[in-house]
Amino acid sequence: MKKQNSKISDVIYYTFVAAFGFVMIYPILWMIMSSLKPEVEIFGNAASLVPGEFRWDNFSRGWEGFGGIGFDVYFRNSIIVTTLVVLGTVASASIVAYGFARINFKFKALLFGCLMATVMLPVQITLIPQYILFHNFGWVNTFYPLIVPAFLGGQPFFIFLLIQFIRGIPRELDEAATIDGCNKFGIFYKIILPLLKPALVTVVIFSFMWTWDDFLAPLIYLNNAGLHTVTLGLRNFMDADAGTNWGALLAMSSLSLLPQFILFAFFQKYLVEGIATTGIK
């Protein structure tokens, strides 16, 4: 009787999970399938996922881009910005986190409190001061405002995540390395950094996704269409006067999700491990 009740509960549970998962993924499925539909069918028969006629030319027309700039330019710009931001975030956030977690220095508690306060600080508050600063540097309409801040401290959220992970690493390893002649940098590079792999993969995935999907910062700082990222490139397809090419827009939107799917598929195991071991569940 207990086995039968257990099987029934399992069936109910997995049915609910499958139904809920389908509801969550339905918008993505609709976007991908609609990218293969003729434009009149996209909204004329929106409820149907299966195209009445497959239009593969939506991808070719979308790849041609807008205003004489191909979509390959937008992909290239996004790859450059995202790669450098991820590298800068991993390098700077890991060093800062190590300092807070392992090194005692003056005003440490005060600075950590300021760090935690910036986690709750809306990005809109610092938008105008940052723009004025970068404008005075002559960096507007370049990639510098998007890339350089990542090398100067990274995201406070990532620093906090890495601090929590480092605190779970036994200090006895540091003491053993000190006895063997390692200095602070040697302990970080040879002991802490290799053990940070799960947390660093988590940082890489989130940093990649947030930077790749960022629309506001490129919109503010990049005026030249040749410097636009994928998010701005998708926005360029929407024209109130000439009309929106929905087929090409949905095709490129589907294609823009591919790098994130690939990254998540390869590093999903480390993502779960990194979040679980830092106590952020």
Rank of each mutant, 00 (worst) to 15 (best):
Ile28Arg: 03
Leu133Gly: 06
Phe237Arg: 12
Phe66Leu: 13
Gly62Glu: 10
Met252Lys: 05
Ile69Pro: 08
Gly67Tyr: 12
Thr83Ser: 15
Arg102Ala: 05
Ala251Thr: 04
Ser78Asp: 01
Ser207Arg: 12
Gln155Ile: 10
Ile8Trp: 07
Phe237Glu: 11
Gly67Leu: 13
Arg235Tyr: 14
Gly138Asn: 05
Gly62Met: 11
Trp246Phe: 13
Ser48Val: 01
Leu115Lys: 05
Leu227Ser: 04
Leu234Thr: 04
Asn77Leu: 12
Phe158Asp: 10
Asn136Ile: 06
Thr82Met: 00
Tyr26Ile: 03
Glu41Met: 04
Ala109Val: 11
Leu146Ser: 00
Ile80Val: 14
Ile275Gly: 00
Leu232Cys: 04
Ser94Val: 10
Val272Gln: 06
Val203Met: 12
Phe105Val: 04
Tyr189Thr: 03
Val86Met: 02
Phe208Arg: 01
Asn104Val: 08
Ile32Met: 09
Leu49Trp: 03
Gly67Glu: 10
Glu175Lys: 07
Trp139Gly: 08
Phe71Met: 05
Trp63Pro: 08
Lys197Ile: 07
Trp210Pro: 00
Ala240Glu: 11
Met238Tyr: 04
Ile12Gln: 02
Gly44Met: 08
Ala46Arg: 09
Val90Gln: 01
Val81Phe: 08
Phe16Thr: 13
Ile80Lys: 03
Ala199His: 14
Gln268Tyr: 03
Val96Trp: 00
Leu234Ala: 09
Ser253Arg: 02
Gly226Arg: 05
Gly153Asn: 10
Tyr98Arg: 02
Thr244Asn: 04
Asn141Cys: 09
Val272Ser: 04
Asn223Lys: 15
Gly138Trp: 12
Phe264Val: 00
Arg167Tyr: 11
Trp63Phe: 15
Leu29Trp: 09
Asn183Ile: 05
Ser9Gly: 14
Thr178Lys: 14
Trp139Met: 12
Leu219Cys: 02
Asp213Ser: 10
Ile179Asp: 06
Leu222Glu: 00
Gly88Trp: 12
Phe215Val: 12
Tyr144Gln: 11
Ser6Phe: 06
Lys7Asp: 12
Gln124Leu: 09
Tyr13Ile: 14
Ile80Thr: 06
Thr83Trp: 09
Asn236Ser: 15
Met238Leu: 10
Thr118Leu: 02
Tyr26Glu: 02
Gly226Asn: 06
Glu53Thr: 13
Ile169Asn: 05
Asp213Tyr: 07
Val148Met: 13
Leu250His: 04
Thr178Asp: 08
Val23Glu: 03
Asp180Asn: 08
Leu29Asn: 06
